[in-house]
Write a protein that binds this DNA or RNA. Structure first.
Length: 254
DNA sequence: AATGTACTCAACCGCGTCATT
DNA sequence: TAATGACGCGGTTGAGTACAT
């Protein structure tokens, strides 16, 4: 036998709250408080609503200290940071954001942040081996990588000539704390590093600036980099930060 | 302008926890 | 100690809106 319902759903109003109902609930709570009993509150206040519905309406919308409007970058950072630590404990996360409710945080996460977070949290491809063509081919405009662990093919379209000795491995060294640059709270640059076992390609990345230096003997290392990410993620994860301040002057030319 | 699709967010649902009896 | 009931939480839904075709 299940638990008894908290109210008779057939006899109480459900759905969106009217301005009149909001005013009634607000006036009652301002005058009497919640009384520590939400179940009894609607009857006392003269509202034909379930107590749980009243509680939710007050806590998530009517409370005077609720902050409405978009989330700031700083708030996003807090949410992502805490989520990576404690998971979907929205009430705990919301407690760190004055004026935000767990429902707000949860909605914001589900609609905006989740995709972004998942993008950066996907396990980096640990090892990619250039399989075709052999890496010594001159003026190749197509490199095909194969991620052996995840059985993913990565296509890089570029015009560079590679001079590393085959077989040539690319390795990610992304530490968990660097998988989502926005997590950085001290403005210290997270530095994901992509390196190879012989010829080196390193990618110091920070929030606003990306400097790429490689010795792939390439004509356009930046394009390689972007293509690489497009191949893996369908999009370049730092797209909106990259185009400004993207410095490729440091790469070693032909 | 009409229709379809994607997105947002308020509200609901059901379960776990805790206080009370 | 067990039963009961209210609260609080996370997951989910669906109406309304924005955007794309």
């Amino acid at each position: 036998m299940g638990r008894a319902p908290c109210c008779d759903k057939a006899s109480v109003k459900r759905g969106p709250w009217s301005p009149q109902e909001d005013a009634t609930l607000t006036a009652f709570i301002n005058k009497h408080g919640t009384g520590g009993n939400w179940i009894a509150l609607p009857r006392k206040a003269g509202l034909n609503r379930c107590g749980k519905s009243c509680r939710l309406r007050w806590l998530n919308y009517l409370r005077p200290d609720i902050k409405h409007g978009g989330f700031t970058q700083e708030e996003d950072n807090v949410i992502c940071s805490l989520y990576s630590t404690i998971g979907s404990r929205w009430a705990v996360i919301a407690s760190q954001l004055p004026g935000r409710t767990d429902n707000d945080v949860k909605n914001h996460w589900n609609t905006k942040l989740k995709k972004k977070f998942n993008l950066f949290s996907d396990p980096p491809i640990p090892t990619a081996v250039i399989t075709d063509p052999p890496p010594c081919s001159a003026a190749s405009n197509s490199l095909k990588l194969h991620d052996q662990e995840h059985n993913i093919n990565i296509n890089i379209n570029t015009n560079f000539m590679f001079s590393g000795p085959p077989p040539f491995e690319l390795k990610h060294n992304f530490e968990p704390q660097y998988q989502f640059p926005m997590l950085n709270q001290n403005n210290k640059n997270p530095v994901p590093e992509l390196s190879t076992s012989s010829s080196s390609i390193s990618l110091p990345i920070d929030q606003n600036h990306l400097q790429f230096s490689g010795n792939g003997d390439g004509s356009d290392d930046a394009e390689i980099l972007q293509s690489y990410y497009h191949g893996i993620y369908d999009q370049y994860p730092y797209e909106d930060q990259l185009m400004e301040g993207f410095d490729v002057s440091n790469y070693m030319g032909l």
